[in-house]
Computed example of a mutant assay.
Amino acid sequence: MTTTLPDAPATTEGLTLSLDTTAVLDIRYRLDVSDNLFAQENTLLADNHRASSLGERRAIVVDGALPENLRERISAYFAAHEIDAHVLTLPSGEARKDIDSVLAVVEFLDTVGVKRTGNAVIGIGGNVLLDIVGFAASIYRRGIPWIRIPTTLLGVVDGCVSAKTGVNHRGARNRLGSFHPAEQTFIDSTLLASLPERQISNACGEILKMALIKDATLFDLLEQHGNELVATAFQHPQAHAVIERAIVGMHTELRDNLWERDLQRIVDYGHIFSPPIEMAVVPDLLHGEAVAIDCLFTAAIAEQRGRISKQDVERIHAVMTQVGLPTLHPMFLDVEVHRHALAESRLHRGGALNLPILDGIGACGFTQDVSSNELEAAAARLANLNGAR
């Protein structure tokens, strides 16, 4: 930190002072992959506790959507390693992603007696649960460390390297939030094996986004193996390659812009038109499903401009079908909804639109304006692709 002091004032009459401060925040966080994380012979979590919090209580927030046998396995793991674990089971889902859930975690942290440093709270669950725990950690005692263990494919490929936390407020997605990265993330792909098929397909929406904006090889993997990946709950031989490319691609885009000082981000692809629709129709559309339809809708705009071919738009539609993603929702045909989404996006991006737009599969640029005629034509193209007109 540096502070520049002004020159001494020429007079002693009254206090005149101006300070200019520049500070740099040093952030480090880690991600580790370990299968069978909660097998008692796997000491990774226990070693982490012994290294940082030996003899102290551990606050653990568990997603209420987890199967009961997994929740029992988690409790048994900490008991077997003689860790004084206090567990809060929290209902999740977009309808519960609110400030009340955050305050419930804060009260739990008070009850357990979590310190400002050291015994990091552990969040175990899907993206919604982890967003709640991360936000609570960011505001409790002005910020305490936390550890993230995603149990859904969406949490693995979308949230695991992000610094953002947030909850919904007044009908707006992630309107309240903070930048507070987990100090450690543990990924266990075997936890995905018992997920419902819709949850697997839902995550493919975010994987598709990463493929479209920067990774044509990832798109090819989805195109070639999408059916099998979903059918096996990502226990397929190509699953690790798909997960790794999605995570590394996201990390590459986020690492130099964690605090979003630059609001021109290609990872916002699929997140321009979808947020108001997603919030309006919960739970008819899950997050990844809404993102995927947005990706297709925005690809139709790029097609009109000659930035992507008709055939590639049809390939995107085919891959979505292959992995079980919906390819249409009636609200995506409502141009007025899209006008509202564009206006909200400008507010969120400091007055600029910064709409990511494809330059073929695996490449992305930006546009600062979309006309009403383009919105109408894209809606018509979406309808045509789905035989709705």
Rank of each mutant, 00 (worst) to 15 (best):
F297V: 02
R71L: 11
N354T: 09
G226N: 11
L54N: 11
E56P: 00
D20S: 15
D63A: 12
K310T: 12
N354E: 10
I207W: 07
L15F: 14
E344W: 12
V323S: 04
A380S: 07
Q322K: 15
G64H: 01
K97C: 11
L333Y: 06
V112T: 08
P91T: 12
G64E: 05
T3L: 15
G55D: 14
H317D: 13
V128L: 12
L254I: 11
F234P: 07
A292R: 07
L19D: 01
A79L: 10
C204I: 14
E376R: 09
L153T: 05
R255W: 00
V114N: 01
H287M: 06
T12Y: 05
G171L: 10
T43G: 00
L382Y: 04
E41Q: 12
A10V: 03
G64K: 03
I293T: 06
I60A: 04
I83W: 05
F135S: 10
V335C: 13
G93P: 04
N42D: 09
A341I: 04
R339L: 15
D20C: 11
F78I: 02
A79F: 06
L328C: 13
E344T: 14
G113Q: 13
G14R: 05
Q264T: 06
L221T: 00
A239V: 05
G350T: 02
E228N: 09
L195K: 08
L129P: 03
P91N: 12
A65C: 13
D312C: 09
D32M: 08
R141D: 02
D110M: 15
L66C: 01
M320Q: 15
A95D: 15
V337K: 03
G14H: 04
G249K: 13
F108G: 01
Y269L: 04
T252R: 11
A39H: 07
A172P: 00
T4L: 15
M320G: 15
R50E: 04
A8Q: 08
H236M: 08
D215E: 01
V24A: 10
A65W: 07
A378R: 03
F179A: 09
R148I: 01
D294R: 01
M1I: 10
V291C: 03
E260Y: 05
R198C: 09
S52P: 02
L347M: 09
V230R: 09
H329T: 09
G350F: 08
A302Q: 00
